[in-house]
Amino acid sequence: MIKPIIRLLLIAALLAPGSAFADTEYARVQFCWAMGKFDHTIYFGEVENREDRQASFDDLLEISGIDHHAVKCNTSDSTSHRLARAKLLKDWRDSEFEIVNTTFLSDLDY
């Protein structure tokens, strides 16, 4: 059995090619996530057709007092995003990690 952290790293590597956009008419979706340092929680947020929100997502976690590992983000077309998101969420649910959707907070403008 692959350890959960190794599985997350493998999934992140699989998501990386999704950054190449097949067609510019598709919506671009940025999906960011980070693992808590001292808990088994994965925090994630997503935003469509906006500028890079990685710094905003990282700021949100910092402001919330959440000690976390480095934020990882992937930007892809909406079709690729839906498929990758479904796979990630399934894998996270099947692990010992808790999942926290911070999307409604991640889109704050600072």
Rank of each mutant, 00 (worst) to 15 (best):
E48C: 04
K90M: 10
A22E: 14
A22P: 14
K90L: 05
Y26M: 07
P17M: 02
A16T: 12
R53E: 08
D91Y: 07
T102C: 12
A55E: 09
T79W: 11
R50T: 12
L14H: 12
E96Y: 02
L61T: 08
F44T: 04
L105P: 14
A84G: 06
L83T: 10
R82Q: 13
Y43K: 02
R53Y: 12
P17R: 03
E51P: 03
D23Y: 13
S106I: 07
L83V: 14
S95C: 00
I5E: 02
R28W: 09
A22V: 15
D59G: 03
R7A: 01
I5L: 04
D23G: 01
N49I: 05
K87W: 11
F104K: 11
A34C: 09
A13M: 09
E98Q: 07
Y110L: 11
G36V: 01
G45L: 03
D39Y: 03
R53K: 15
A55W: 12
I66G: 09
E96R: 08
A16G: 01
S80C: 08
A12R: 13
G65Y: 03
L10Y: 13
R82M: 07
R85I: 03
D91C: 06
W33Q: 07
M35I: 02
E46W: 06
E48G: 01
L83M: 10
D52Q: 05
G36H: 01
R50H: 09
H40Y: 00
F57N: 06
S76R: 04
C73V: 08
G18W: 05
D109K: 08
E46K: 04
R85Y: 10
D67F: 01
E98F: 03
R53P: 01
S95T: 00
V29G: 03
K3Y: 02
H81Y: 15
V100Q: 12
V71C: 00
N49Y: 12
D91W: 01
N101Y: 06
V71F: 02
R50G: 00
N74R: 08
I5C: 00
K3N: 00
A34M: 05
W33I: 09
S19M: 04
F97K: 02
S80E: 14
F31P: 03
L105K: 08
I2L: 04
T102S: 09
F44S: 04
A20V: 15
S106Q: 12
A13V: 10
D107I: 15
K3P: 00
R50M: 15
H81S: 07
A70W: 10
K72D: 04
I99W: 04
